[in-house]
Write a protein that binds this DNA or RNA. Structure first.
Length: 272
DNA sequence: AGTGCGACCCGAACGC
DNA sequence: TGCGTTCGGGTCGCAC
């Protein structure tokens, strides 16, 4: 379940291994993942090098001198680094082989992830990038900005926190955690949230994402060429996936409900 | 325009 | 035990 912190970990880990290696081959085993024509991507990637890996929201940007290969992991996307002679396994859908026979495999059991190659100067023509809001760790995320985005919306705060055009990079897990930390009930509507509460949301989002990124960073050394890259944050969750257990703050029982089709966990006593 | 919801996928968890 | 069913996760696109 990659969210911003996991994507950041993947980015930092891959950077250590694949930058400035000439790309020798590009193969697609499940076409819907790649939004371009396979041949188009081969023409523009083979012979090039990735000179950097960047991140915008949950999108990874593999940068060459002329293009970005954009990659969204959705829920279960992972990258594995193997040797090019290793057999392609069941859920490995895209392979990039480097000159030194390092083989980077995109692995995605549910096939929800997406990739797209785009010219650098057209990056912001791509909807997925153009629509990204402000990240929790950016100073531009202010209580005024959030109030402006929330106060005319008559939908649950849980849904608003998951809207990537407002805050970029929060997923279902951290949305629950941010609302708990800010003391706001996930069903409260945006138009019932005060500017003071927007300040709390901003502070909670920044705190939780900063910590999550730090923790993601600590898992780098557990990464090996055959294990893939994931974050490890479960032990710090206050509400998410804790239905029926006691709230760490007040001992009330953590509740679960569906909001906008997403499971949401919260404490009725601590979140108003 | 704003909002709600099904579709996309498939392994895991659950119910019988 | 084994079978069928439900769930979940982010995002898009369609219906209201």
């Amino acid at each position: 379940m990659p969210e911003i912190a996991e994507v950041e970990t993947v980015r930092n880990t891959l950077k250590l291994r694949i930058l400035n290696q000439k790309i020798k081959d590009f193969k697609v085993f499940y076409k819907p993942i790649l939004l371009n024509d396979e041949q188009f991507v081969r023409e523009h990637l083979i012979g090039k090098k990735f000179i950097d890996i960047q991140r915008i929201g949950k999108w990874l940007l593999f940068e060459t001198d002329t293009h970005y290969l954009l990659s969204h992991l959705r829920m279960e996307g992972k990258y594995f680094l193997k040797d090019s002679s290793d057999p392609i396994e069941k859920h490995e859908h895209i392979e990039i082989v480097f000159e030194n026979n390092l083989s980077m495999r995109y692995h995605d059991t549910r096939k929800f992830g997406r990739m797209k190659l785009i010219e650098k100067d057209r990056l912001y023509e791509f909807e997925g990038i153009k629509k990204q809001g402000i990240e929790p760790i950016q100073d531009a995320l202010t209580k005024e900005y959030l109030y402006e985005k929330f106060h005319k919306r008559h939908i649950p705060m849980k849904t608003l926190l998951l809207d990537q055009t407002i805050i970029s990079g929060l997923g279902n897990i951290y949305a629950d955690e941010v609302l708990f930390d800010a003391g706001i009930h996930p069903m409260r509507h945006g138009d019932a949230v005060s500017i003071q509460e927007c300040e709390k949301i901003k502070n909670s989002a920044r705190k939780i994402i900063t910590k999550a990124i730090e923790m993601g960073g600590t898992t780098i050394r557990s990464y090996t060429s055959s294990l893939g890259v994931t974050g490890r944050f479960q032990q710090y969750l206050m509400v998410h996936k804790r239905e029926g257990e006691q709230c760490y703050q007040c001992k009330n029982i953590i509740q679960k409900m569906k909001i906008g089709g997403r499971s949401s966990y919260y404490c009725e006593h601590c979140q108003k």
